[in-house]
Structures are given as C-alpha cells and as structure tokens.
Amino acid sequence: MKHIRILRRRILRFTVSAIVICLLLFLLQRLLMPKYSVGTQDGAMIAEYYNDAPKHNLVIIGDSEMYENISPLVLWENYGINCYIRGSAQQLIWQSYYLLEDTLRYETPEAVIINITSMQYGEPQRESYNRMTLEGMRWSTSKVKAIFASMTEEESFWDYVFPLLRYHSRWNDLTEDDFRLMFSEEKVSLNGYMMQVGVKPAENVPEGRPLADYTFSDVSYQYLDKITKLCKEHDVELILMKSPSLYPYWYEEWDAQLKTYAAEHEIRYLNCVNNDEIGLNFQTDTFDGGLHLNVAGAEIYSNFLGRWLQNEIEISDLRDDGELVQAWNSKAADYEEKKSEKYRELSEQ
C-alpha cells in the first residue's frame, strides 16, 4: 500500500514537472520566435493564408514578384476573381511545389499561377529566406519534405521542429512587440499582397551578365514536372508566369526553355517582361527602381492579368457569392485605409 502511494506520488511529480517544463519551453519559444509582422513582414504571409476561407478560384505561388506586383482586390473588383497569393521572399521552385501541395489539401482552385523566376536556382540558397517560407506553413508531410529539400548545409531539421533551438539567443534583442505578439501576429497582407506606395524610377538598369550555362538545373525541372503533374491530377489549370520586372535580368535563353517546356506539356506560359500591352511605366510604377511594382503598378498589372485570365482560361466570376462579396467589402475598406495611411506616411517623410 505504502509502495503504491510512493509510486503514485512519483508519477504525479514527474507529470507535473514535465508539464511545467513543456509549458516553459512553449512560452519561451513563442516569446523568442521573430515577430515577422513588425519586422521583416515578408515572413508573415505564408501563415496568413490559413486564416482566409479556402474558396479561392485562383492561387498564385511565388516570390516577391508575385506578392508585391499583383493586387487581389483589383482582380476581385474588376473580374470577380477570388485570388490568394502564397508568396515568400526568394521562394525556390521546390518550395512553390510544396506550397502547392499544401494548398491542395485545403482547396482546389480553378487555376494556379507559378512564378518561374526561381527556376534559375538549383540548390538551397539562404537560411533566412527558407525560414520566411517554411515557418509559416502548417505541419504536414509537405512541410517536412519542403524543409528537407530547402535546408542549407548549416541547417538542421530539429531547428524547424523546435524553433527555440534556432532563436535561443534572441533574448538579447527582445522588444515590447515580442511580448505583445507572443500568441497572435498582426495581419500584414491583403490576400497575400504586400502593398508598397513609394516611387523610385528605374534608371541605369544593368544588363544581364553572360552566363556560362543557361540551362535550368535538373532539380528545377524535376520540381516543375511535379507541379505540372500535380495540377493535372487535380484538374487545375497551371499557368507559368514571369512577372514584369526589369531586374534581376530575365535571359532570352531562359524564356526559350520555358516556352519549349510549356509547349511540350500543353500548359500556358505568360512572360510579362517588357510586355507593352500591360501599360506599365517604370518611371512611376515601381518603388525600387524596376525590381518590383508599387501599388499603382500592381493595379495596372492586375487589370492586365484579370483580362488575360478571362480571355485565355475563362476564369469564373464569383461576384454572385454573397459570402465572398461580404468578405471582400471588408477587405476593400482595409485596403483603402492602408493605402491612404501609407501615402500619408510617404508624404510625411
């Protein structure tokens, strides 16, 4: 009897201790993880997708050329396209694939646009960009595979499982925001769009340096094949796209390879570099000298894209869905408010 009582007490003590330690570790992890919404906002967007109703008929996956160049509000207001951009900084092609796989767990859109700028990268690039793409993903086999595909040599899988191990030394840089946003981040995007309002005309854009080899790597093609196959399996219209941007340079040789690929696989490829039909003016429509578009440029480009989608794939107009209309009305108000606020901030500078 006494023995059982001691054993019971020991089990209770162990359980309480384990719970206290787990709780401490959980709180520390929440505290020490970077709060992207008040820092490098590009890292906050992947996670925001899960808060939006999965009723999108267009999902755009890619890097900053997507999430800074396309305004989902314009696509909705003018064409009835309910679009979400799953964008992250320097998103690599395998990350796009796993994000697509992840998206298809929640919904099956009519069309998916993949930014193919990342085809030029055949191997993992930088840990900081990996973090911004992968940390926001919910845990799934897609996330696990994305981590293993993306890790640079110095990274460890366990650091993704327990981010506290990665950010353990951030205690020295903690701010009030880290405590305030421990459990919920602020929303930074509108359906994955990150608004920029500044103007920095494109001047002296450098020409591309000649490359020793223009052929995309086998790994890039391998993941492009997987994207194509996955879209076909889910009956999703796949569109490969190169967003309008003057720099980094988009080589004709790269363009030619993608044209060939698209033709061989009977998919659409839309290259918007130097496309006069869009009507962009890189003296006024870019905030960083031609790399990305500001809100004016994004609205112009989104109008072009909406028209193109209507004409080419006859994408559905969802403006008769009351629930979506209501949601978008609220988003439109936020969008306009944010826009005015950003312009005000700009004028005050």
């Binding site: 201790s17 206290v20 330690i21 401490l24 520390l28 650091d159 353990h168 030394s169």
Partner: peptide
C-alpha cells in the same frame, strides 16, 4: 526537497538552452 532540485536543474537546463553558443550564427 524536490521543488528545490527541480528549480536548480531546470534553471541550469534553460541557461544552457538560452545562453549556449550553438546553432547557426
């Protein structure tokens, strides 16, 4: 007593975890 032991060893564990020079960087 158990509580004292628990506090000592947990504090040491957290000290290593948070102030240890390991990982990227």
């Amino acid at each position: 007593p158990y509580t004292v032991r628990f506090v000592i060893w947990t504090a040491l564990f957290l000290a290593v975890l948070l102030t240890g020079a390991y990982g990227i960087g």
